[in-house]
Amino acid sequence: MEEKMPSKNDLSALKGATQKPVILPSNDLPPAVETKPAKRAGQGVGRPPKQKAEKRSYKVTLSLTPSERAKLAKQSGLAGEATYLYAKLKEIGVI
């Protein structure tokens, strides 16, 4: 630490009387070189990405009368109207 206080209780004259703490020499071996396994292409951290597939992102709006809608709902049952219609269009080869 730099001297910042006046010379009260100054031990400078005694410093030569004490030996500096002995610091043991370090081992002369060359520093160890850290080796890392080569990174393979596509190998990153964590789960590999999913294959990019075509997403069903395009939406079609269909207008129905209440009775048509009731008929559709009855046929689609628990599957849901959009799911039922999608399956039917696939079935007849429209999509």
Binding site: M1, E2, E3, K4, M5, S7, N9, D10, L11, S12, L14, K15, T18, Q19, P21, V22
Partner: peptide, 10 residues
């Protein structure tokens, strides 16, 4: 503690 006030020995 300023250097001139510190005495360290083994």
């Amino acid at each position: 503690i300023p250097d001139n006030r510190l005495l360290a020995v083994g």
